[in-house]
Design a binder for these strands. Structure first.
Lengths: 230, 230
DNA sequence: TGTACAATCATTGTATACAATCAACCCTAG
DNA sequence: CTAGGGTTGATTGTATACAATGATTGTACA
């Protein structure tokens, strides 16, 4: 199956999203020639995209063997959440000081989305909204290096939450914690925002059930077709 | 000037070192074809190396324009040191808990080097020894994600210290602070190690003179020749 | 003289052909 | 039936040719 030609950035976005939402199951091999054919380009830009995903820890590249979708072990998950716990409270502190009105709007938007998806019993979409909310918060901290690292760590935690079962989590609590965090930022109460962020992360981790893996898997062609406009 | 063929990893190391030590002056354009000729390979592996350096913030790539050696502004320097201040004390805490005997040996080795280079009045080499010492510390924390981010941030701070003038700093104090830090880690006193690391960073920053830029610059060919074995 | 515009050139971006690598398979000898 | 070793095939790694981009220079015209 061949599609219309696509730009490198677009290809990156599609693959990133697919890994992000665990539609490409962790461990899947990404073969350059197949992707090239699917996206209607040569292997050259595909290699660039895979290389970028490697630096973001979303794929692992084994020399002369190939690229494989990142597959977090529970031990790695713990290390990832540890780093998130190190970075996010401080970034939240800065966000409370520096958030622009458009940052605040963005946070609000995704909070509403989260609530809406919970009510519609679509936890998978709610998780995406939560990710976007947290992303909006860290973007507001205005330190590009901190943003870069936290964005990466946040993506990894999102993959973990999507890949492992979190159905036991209390959705109402989750939404309330996020709203409280937003309120603290909105009121420029940086200390309180930091403390809320600090307490928030353990409440995410405790609901992960590492014994149950979920399955959202799609084929490469399904993914390409879905994201291809028209 | 053409040289014997070299592997991608080796090329990466050479370019990284050259940028790291400000031998390639910040702002220098790195032209793919020149590097390819210099290293005796095609543009393909050069592009891979430049792309990697880009993800490590050591070069900036402007699309359709080229790759340029990272050129830190004082404002960026502040943001970089801020992130270092966020990460390094905690990593030092973990290092005190987890350092292996070979980690400790490594730290000790570079402490001696630092002292030795100061005595020989070679501040530039002493800076490199300090970097290696700090690197040994963070490696001991055993969290691969934290190590990755701190390694990057540490490299950026090293570039800043090499690029701007720090000749006013008190070399004896510096060495003593490092030895104290090592002692705390050696004694597994994690809390003290963390505190020392916390106090150490401001004492680095205060000696930077952003008004004076130093010049260590070499041409690409000089760099290739110097690092080429034989 | 200064500005708009066209041609030129250096450089990056992409496609394709070929080389190198490694795993899996099969075949043979013990 | 098993262990060793060579062969094959799928995949990545590299070189090279060509296309696209955008800055620079030169030039005509106001």
């Amino acid at each position: 199956m061949s599609h219309s030609k696509m730009g490198e950035h677009q290809i990156y976005q599609i693959l990133r999203n697919a890994i992000f939402n665990a539609e490409l199951p962790p461990g899947t091999q990404l073969v350059e020639s197949s992707l090239a054919e699917g996206f209607g380009v040569s292997r050259t830009p595909i290699r660039a995209v895979l290389s970028r995903l490697k630096y973001e820890s979303l794929v692992r590249i084994i020399p002369n063997r190939g690229a494989f979708v990142y597959c977090p072990t529970p031990e790695e998950a713990e290390q990832i959440f540890f780093v998130r716990q190190m970075l996010e409270p401080e970034a939240t502190y800065l966000a409370a000081l520096n958030a622009s009105s458009s940052d605040l709007e963005s946070m609000n938007f995704f909070l509403d989305k989260e609530e809406q998806y919970y009510k519609q019993n679509q936890p998978h979409l709610a998780l995406q909204a939560i990710h976007s909310f947290h992303f909006a918060v860290i973007e507001a901290c205005k330190n590009p290096y901190l943003i870069q690292y936290l964005q990466e760590i946040l993506s990894l935690t999102h993959i973990i939450l999507t890949f492992y079962d979190v159905s036991e989590s209390n959705t109402t609590d989750s939404n309330h914690e996020h709203r409280d965090l937003y309120d603290a930022i909105y009121q420029r109460d940086a200390t309180r925002a930091k403390q809320l962020a600090n307490e928030h992360i353990p409440s995410i981790v405790k609901d992960i059930d590492f014994t149950k893996k979920l399955n959202h898997s799609l084929s490469i062609d399904q993914i390409i077709t879905r994201y291809t406009p028209k």
